[in-house]
Write a protein that binds this DNA or RNA. Sequence first.
DNA 1: CATGCATACTCGTATAGACGAGTGGGCAAG
DNA 2: CTTGCCCACTCGTCTATACGAGTATGCATG
Lengths: 261, 261
Amino acid sequence: MTSLPSILGGLDPTSDRAVFRQIADQLREAIDRGRFKEGEKLPSEAELVEHYGVSRMTVRNSFSILQGEGLVHAEHGRGVFVRPRPPVRRLASDRFARRHREQGKSAFIVEADAAGSHPTVDSLEVKEEKAGQDVSTRLGSVRRVLARRRRYLLDGRPVEFATSYLPLDIARGTPIAEPNPGPGGIYARLEELGHQLDHFEEEIRARMPTPSEVKTLRLAPGVPVIHLIRTAFDTAGRAVEVCDTVMAADAYVLSYQLPAT
Amino acid sequence: MTSLPSILGGLDPTSDRAVFRQIADQLREAIDRGRFKEGEKLPSEAELVEHYGVSRMTVRNSFSILQGEGLVHAEHGRGVFVRPRPPVRRLASDRFARRHREQGKSAFIVEADAAGSHPTVDSLEVKEEKAGQDVSTRLGSVRRVLARRRRYLLDGRPVEFATSYLPLDIARGTPIAEPNPGPGGIYARLEELGHQLDHFEEEIRARMPTPSEVKTLRLAPGVPVIHLIRTAFDTAGRAVEVCDTVMAADAYVLSYQLPAT
DNA sequence: CATGCATACTCGTATAGACGAGTGGGCAAG
DNA sequence: CTTGCCCACTCGTCTATACGAGTATGCATG
């Protein structure tokens, strides 16, 4: 183990930059330079207190900055570690192409298998409920909807939480209202029911997670979520489904292909 | 002003939830319920110390949680305020359609004007430089590129920082290498130069900002960035431009339209 | 009336100390 | 050798205090 002073330097008392920021800066730089590698343990609070000659709260303050940036994570009783960048899942813009649907398996399963990961779907809930303001508007002023909630996991890690909303007059009494809608998912069923799909509209936001999202996605501090709202339109121009998806941002790259016409 | 106890309730000493989390929970809920409105000042640290009978650091700890969630922001000497949700800028997926280009103004200016905001572009830098690993790969192993850097502001607020990279054999000595490339932007110039555009590819990530991004975008704590990398392809299948964009996530909603074929 | 300063109130930074709780290694007892 | 406990080390939470610095308000002075 290399000695601390050789990695971390000292403080500049003349600087007007707060001490805890200077410490955070030095740790961040050391991480960026690879002096501390992914998954590696940073010096303990006590060691940094010793090295810099500051109080423990000041060191903790520095750590909390890095934690907020998603650079490190603390483990109670073990130490503070450089957060490994987890493998990412790519979502291609053609993931809902009919040709994929025709193969029967869901987009999530197919992609995960291809990437060599072990996909799971859990906490499936299917029920009728009152439509929220936003969903109601998007679906064209419907009052009640069928809601399909599910959570996706990759190698045991939750990465995505999604809810599909469908108008009752379309979904009630069909396979769509079943926990397992069958091969090709609900888009395949919609087309069988005569709702030929025309196009999708996707809205993307990024923000910090709510506490409840932190819980269901087991998010580390400093990890934002990608909030995607997709509306499916049939050839008659009617919105037949709204899918509200919250993804752990550190697990995803979205990819879109746009024509230049 | 309503009295604090009527809004905030007390602590549960039997709970194993940390005191500062309980306080954060109560404040968060009060904000969600609209007891504290956008832009409104929360009770001061001193008031909360009084109300809950805890030390100041504990209260500050609560605030720092809410700040990390992007719910509130502190102003030195003034107080802690509920962060207003700023007006968002929508990026439609047809924003690079040729018909828009033909009108001459840049997409950013047109959209901002339409939304009634006052758009600005600053810190324009145009220079030749060595291509980074990623850019080089995307452009097909070029070594040096023309880099065009600019920052976009809306009503004085920086919302986006973008860099375009173009292969030198395409851009050198053309209007693209000028600070102002002329009406329709560089895509119009590319087509005039014989590089008929075929399609774009966009990759989207979300993450917490680096300190340097916090600075140039003047980001509040708890605001993630959307990182968008767009590659433009001509009809010959060659990548003719890579545009690397970092956006303040609280200022944007991206919108894409996908065919269902 | 206008200016400017004093002052009270705000958050920012830092110290020092205390106890709790999770983790892991070593040692002693079986 | 295995089991189980103790202990050292780690981060988590909380208190109490101190001083600095930005903001706003009102009052005194000109």
